[in-house]
Design a protein around this nucleic acid. Structure first.
Length: 160
RNA sequence: GCUACAAGCCAGGCUAUCGCUUUUUCGUCCUGAGUUUAUCGAAGGAUGAAAAGGAGGAAAGUCCGGACAGCACAGAGCAAUGUACCGGUGAAUAGCCGGGUCUCCGCAGCAAUGCGGGGAACAGACAGUGCCACAGAAAAUAACUGCCUUACCUCUCCUUUAGGAGAGGGCAGGGUGAGGUUGAAAAUGUGAGGUAAGAGCUCACAGCUUAUAAUGGCAACAUUAUUCGCGGGUAAACCUUGCAUGCUGAAAUGCCACAUAUACUAUCGGUAAGGGCUGCUCGCCCGUGUGCAGGUGCAAGCCUGCUGCGAUAGAGGGUAGGCAGAUGGAUCCCAACAGCAAUGUUGAGGACAGAUAAAUGAUAGCCACCCUGAGUUUACCAAAGGGGACAGAAUCCGGCUUACAGGCUUGUAGUUUUU
RNA sequence: GGCCCGUUCGUCUAACGGUUAGGACAUCAGAUUUUCAUUCUGGUAAUAGGGGUUCGAUUCCCCUACGGGCUA
């Protein structure tokens, strides 16, 4: 919040600041999983764990192995099955809620990934059969993120 | 005022914080065509800021019809698929509008009929084939029973031993389709004549139907007159007749990039002759490079993909594929005119999203709306609490169908109170 | 996005337009047995919803709902 306030007040003067310190809670084009190939690879090679309403697929690779430099450290996707929710509106609603919960809470993960030089792809699949409330989704997404942080830390300690 | 039905319209608003996406402008960074070799910079990419725009009446179902694209195609008939009262409308339809016929319901009337509302795949059952359970004699040339009659046999009576009258019987021949308890449906119905008994056999009235003519109507059709006739139903059974139809769909298609050198692109060559035009007929046509799979109605040819032989030429470097198609069009709103209407013409101005693991959002508060209603001044007040549907563009349009909280407007009907 | 197919007792299924919609497993009741199992007898139980054609629809036609498959 501090940086935001700062950037708003000094638009003309501090160009460098704007360039380096961007918005916090973004979820732009590069931060989402958009390619069919990537997602298929994720399902093939990724690891999974369950926390109740979600099933999580993820892969982590060191940044040094990746050639494409425009990639960000963290990429995200979400899906809801047609079997459990037949109406498109409900599916849209769930995807929007999960995206929102992810967007607001992912900051900590990003910082960790930058310091440990890793790239992480995450995919959420909603497996419950009832429409959730926002607070519930927010809580569970926070739990998932803390779990991911734990996994990365363990991996770091083992690798080093 | 309330309730019900029908038609049309709307599909909550505002603020704050944090986001997504498209376009434009400005800034920064990267690459860098160009050449004047630089504090230049086309085109492109990344990123930040600002401004503007950002989901429906059904975006849904995919039930119809088109636009558009690719492939195929000398032609005619049969076949296949769809469709079926008439006219209009429109790009087109099984849509829409108007009309006709039949039929159902309600009201009025003794009835004929009239008025109002709804429904109809509404061509053909004298072209042919099939089917019609149970019941019934029979479910369709007909048979059975029955009725009448002829000859024969038996009995009784009369009597000029020939025979006549009456009754009964069963075999045979003839006539008949009037009666036969059923059923959804039984050979048009009623009356009279006629006959051995009967029958549209004849006649009168009524009903249906064929053809012709007149009148009205663009037509379907209606009315009237004359005439042929009166063998059920079923074509949403096969079928017949008329009309229409080439097939496949944006995951179509075009371009660029990428791609393993036994690869890719372009051009060319080689063994072998029959085969095709839709399955059939007529009539006609093509042609000399292999195999497999898919598409186009089988096959062939053609196209696409894969595999495989040879020759010549060209061309090389790194992984989210990208762009076009693709969003402005048979559009919507307003006014005038034409038309019964669907709709058309003219005019002015305004509006109109473009995502691609798929945007158009999330949270909080307030206001408005609806429900319950503590309270007490019993009302046109109201704390606190609860509720807000159906549903998410995917190439684009025109219809149809289905889902839908609540509100507004108009019309019709009913009811209550007051006058 | 486009195309095609299906829906019958709790489950798996059968049916020529014509009976009370048949069969198997399951379930319920009774019999057999000291008891249980097996076996035998009997019962309950369904045409997805709506409309049409027909004298009469599980069947034929239309609409709707739901389910499944194919297609890069």
């Amino acid at each position: 919040m501090n940086s935001l306030y700062f950037s708003n007040s000094s638009v003309i003067g501090a160009i460098f600041v704007i360039c380096t310190v961007a918005k916090q809670f973004t979820l732009g084009r590069n931060e989402r999983l958009k390619s069919r190939k990537q997602i298929e690879q994720l399902f093939k090679e990724g690891k999974t764990f369950n926390t109740f309403p979600f099933r999580i697929f993820y892969t982590q690779t060191p940044v040094s192995l990746i050639n494409n430099q425009s990639l960000t450290n963290l990429q995200f996707g979400a899906a809801v099955s047609t079997k459990n929710f037949k109406r498109a509106t409900d599916r849209n609603r769930i995807k929007r809620l999960t995206r929102e919960a992810w967007r607001i809470q992912k900051k900590e993960l990003e910082v960790l990934l930058k310091t440990s030089d890793k790239q992480l792809n995450v995919f959420f699949i909603y497996t419950a059969k009832e429409l959730p409330e926002y607070n519930f989704v927010y809580e569970k997404a926070g739990f998932v993120i803390s779990k991911l942080i734990k996994i990365i830390n363990e991996n770091n300690s083992v690798g080093s």
